[in-house]
Structure formats: structure tokens, C-alpha cells
Design a protein around this nucleic acid. Structure first.
Lengths: 234, 234
DNA sequence: TAAAAATGTAACGATATTGTTACATTAGAG
DNA sequence: CTCTAATGTAACAATATCGTTACATTTTTA
């Protein structure tokens, strides 16, 4: 029905048409969708139009300096950039990486190394994304999907309850004052200094957590101060 | 109130104590907290205990093969791994990267390059995390905070509406069938084949988007099929 | 073009979520 | 221990969200 393929698009920017053809052919064999440009301007335009998953950028371009192109791309987009260049000097490499490139490969290179470095970057991104899950003892929180699991069974939290939990796990083990919590949960509301709303939401969250856990309190009360999220001994 | 320091910890695993000392000194100057181990076993133990932000792994270790250590670490942890080694062969590099390393540097190397590659990796991670924001024309979506901005002003979406928007931007420009959308939004519900709920939620989402935008429809109806999220010409 | 099918949309009741209140319980000060 | 302040918690009303329905409008089919 919908195209669910995870095929990644790689933009290749190089003015040497032979090199483009060779690399493109190999990348296609690797399963990538490849688009190309022969100038810096063309590369930038193509990036804006196609929003590729990764860019291979030669530093020797006919119109613009490759480093300048890299800067522009890095400024506007988040995709990884690998520089391909004949410049082997240390200062070139360091400059390239400091400009925002994710990797720097010196020509001539073997395609197998390029391929391995591309997948290494994609794997790093994948691992980083998956890492948006956090585990606290028998509690598992997926911040991307907002799914909360306790002992592998789902806990349904309301928006406010999830906000509280998110706040607690951001400062595990730290005592958070009532005022601080209230400011985070209700940022533009009037001062809740005399409201009991926070107490009530804490109770509701505790009840839902406790219903699924055999552990004692995750949320510890500190009278006169506020609350603390207990992550020890789990 | 809470310790907000962003100092990163790097674990250096190498049996050459001179090299360890040199690299460690330079990394400390770069502002990192550095811990070290001289054996594979020691490195694994240290990683488990300290959960570093990055590991520098020499492939020549007295007890275990470096590639084996890398496999074990990659299996258990998400932190990036940079291999440091004298093995310059193509197959070594490719094997190293395929084993799960994020980068591979051949000894002898200049510290400046190592330093640049470390920050390149940290920057990639940072960008990937921040990338949980997406821009579509005048529409900006932060998937982490679930905040939606249109022309820089906030749109308040309900859970279902945000789910729809998230689904649409996952498949920009693609036609999504009603059945597909319904399965994604109400996964464990009965078949909504004859329900009009989807239509109603689409209208509500459209109204909220339109209220803030001067563009035509973002969500295009495809009669008989479903809907399509229009990302062109914005 | 006319009929049929699909979609748009306002309005309604059901349910979920929220913040307040009142009273019970607990912790800490003296 | 007693008193007081802080916190726990059930119940309630206000609001938000949801899915259905009925009817209007648009698109497709024939």
C-alpha cells in the first residue's frame, strides 16, 4: 500500500563524472538510492529539494569551495556529511571535521572503506535514536512514543503524569522542590504556591506505578521540600 | 540546584602505558574526564562500572582480541567506539567498522585528528537528538516535546491529532489509505471500516493548522483512497 | 448529466483529564 | 508527647477529548 521501504538516499557531490559514476554504481549495489550534483550550488539545491539521508561531498568543486558548501549544508540540515578529498594534510582533515563533516576520507580510497564508514554513521544514528528509551529498574520509558512500561506491561499516563515522570527521570535521585516542579509542569500559569494540584497528580502517578510494581515508592516525599525520584536498589 | 555539568567521560583501553598517558593528558586538556584500562577484561569491567560516553579501543590487547572486546561492548552498550590500531589493511578497517566501531584510526596518528573525530561523533549524536525536530514549510514539529509551531506560534493538538500529524510527516507526499491510517492510530481497536471518526479528526487537525497558516491544504484528500500530506511548494 | 459513493462538518453525548475542596493522615518542631 | 504544618487522598465540578450521528457538499461512476 504505502512504500514502507527504508531505502536511504545519498547525495553525491563531485565534479568528476567518472568518479560519480563509479561510486554511484557501487552505492546502488549496496541498496542506496543515489542522486548527484556536479557543483556546489547544484548540491545545495539538490539537498534542499530531496532532503537526502547522507551527503558525500568532494572538496574540489568548480564553483564554490567545498568547505563553504559543507558549512552551508550543516547550517541548514542535520544529515551526515562525509568529505571525499585528495587533501591529505592534518590541517585539512581537522578543518573539515571542525566544519561539521562527520567523516573525512582521503582519495584514492577503496569503496569498501567508504561503504563501511557510511553504514557506521547510519548505525550510530540508529543507536542514538533507539537510545531515546530509558530504563529505570523495572520501569522503561520511551520518550519518543511516550510509552511507559512497568515489568513489560503498559502504564497509561495522562499528559501531566508523563510530564512529571519525565521531569523526575531527568533528575534521578535529586530532590526537586515543589516550586521547581510546578514551574516545569505549568510554565505560564499563575503561581500555584497554595494549590494542591501537584500533590494530587503525584498521587495519581504513584497509584499507576504502584499498581504494576512490587517495589516500594519510586517517588519519595521530602516534607517541606518536594519530591525525589528513587532509582537506587532496583 | 542539580549538577548540570556536561563533562563527558572517555574510556581509553590500551596496554601501552606511555600512549595511555599521552592521550589521556591531551583529552583532559580538551576538557574530558578520562578513565583507562590496560586489558580487554579490564576495559569491559570499567565500561560496565562507569558507563562512559565514548570508548577508545586499541586492537592489540594482552588478553582478548580487540575485535572481540568491541563486539561485547557493542552488544551491551550504546556508546560510540573508536578503534586505535596499527593495522592499516583495508580488511582490518572494514572488519573493525563492521564489528560496530564508529571510527577507525591508524597509528601513529596526530592527536588533533583524534580530537576532531571525537567531537565529530559527539556532534553527530547531538544533532541526531536535536533532530527530533522537523520542519515542513511553515510547520515545525518537535517530536520530543510534542510541540507544534506554525509560523512560530504554538498549535495545541490533542493526542489523536498529533498522532495523525506524526503519521503524515513520516510519509511525506505519500498517499496513505484510510485503513492504514486507522490501523496506526487505533492499533488494537476493532476495525473502523465504517466509522467516520478518522474524517472528523482530520477536519479538526486541518482546522487547527489552517487557523495559523495562509497556505492551502497541508492534508490533501484522495477520494476513494485516503489522505496525503503535501510538502511541496512551501 | 444524474445517481451513487465518498468526504466535509456541525452538533451531541460519553468518557477522560484536570484542578479544587474537604477531610484524614503523617512528619517534624518544640 | 502535643501541636502544627505538610502531605495523602477521596469526591466533585469544570473542561477537554473522543467517537457517533445527521445532514451538506464534493467527487466519481455510469
Amino acid at each position: 500500500m504505502t512504500n514502507n521501504s527504508n531505502q536511504k538516499t545519498i547525495l553525491l557531490v563531485d565534479d568528476d563524472k567518472d568518479i560519480v559514476q563509479t561510486i554511484q554504481g557501487n552505492l546502488v549495489i549496496d541498496g542506496y538510492n543515489v542522486i548527484s550534483a556536479f557543483t556546489g550550488q547544484g548540491g545545495i539545491a539538490m539537498a534542499e529539494k530531496k532532503n537526502p539521508d547522507l551527503v558525500l561531498l568532494d572538496l574540489n568543486l568548480p564553483d564554490l569551495d567545498g568547505v563553504a558548501v559543507c558549512k552551508i549544508l550543516r547550517n541548514k540540515f542535520n544529515f551526515p556529511i562525509i568529505m571525499l578529498t585528495a587533501r591529505d594534510g592534518l590541517s585539512d582533515k581537522v578543518l573539515g571535521l571542525k566544519t561539521g563533516a562527520d567523516d573525512y576520507i582521503v582519495k584514492p580510497f577503496d569503496f569498501l572503506e567508504l561503504s563501511a564508514r557510511i553504514t557506521a554513521i547510519f548505525n550510530r544514528i540508529e543507536r542514538t535514536i533507539v537510545q531515546s528509551k530509558q530504563q529505570f529498574g523495572d520501569l522503561e520509558i520511551n520518550f519518543r512514543t511516550r510509552q511507559v512500561l512497568m515489568n513489560s506491561s503498559t502504564i497509561k499516563l495522562t499528559k501531566t503524569e508523563f510530564g512529571l515522570l519525565e521531569l523526575f527521570v531527568t533528575y534521578p535521585g535529586k530532590a526537586l522542590t515543589r516550586k521547581f516542579i510546578e514551574k516545569q509542569i505549568w510554565p505560564d500559569s499563575k503561581l500555584y504556591s497554595n494549590s494542591r494540584a501537584l500533590d494530587v497528580h503525584i498521587q495519581r502517578l504513584r497509584k499507576k506505578i504502584k499498581a504494576k510494581s512490587d517495589h516500594p515508592e519510586y517517588i519519595v516525599t521530602i516534607p517541606g521540600i518536594g519530591y525525589r525520584f528513587n532509582t537506587e536498589n532496583r
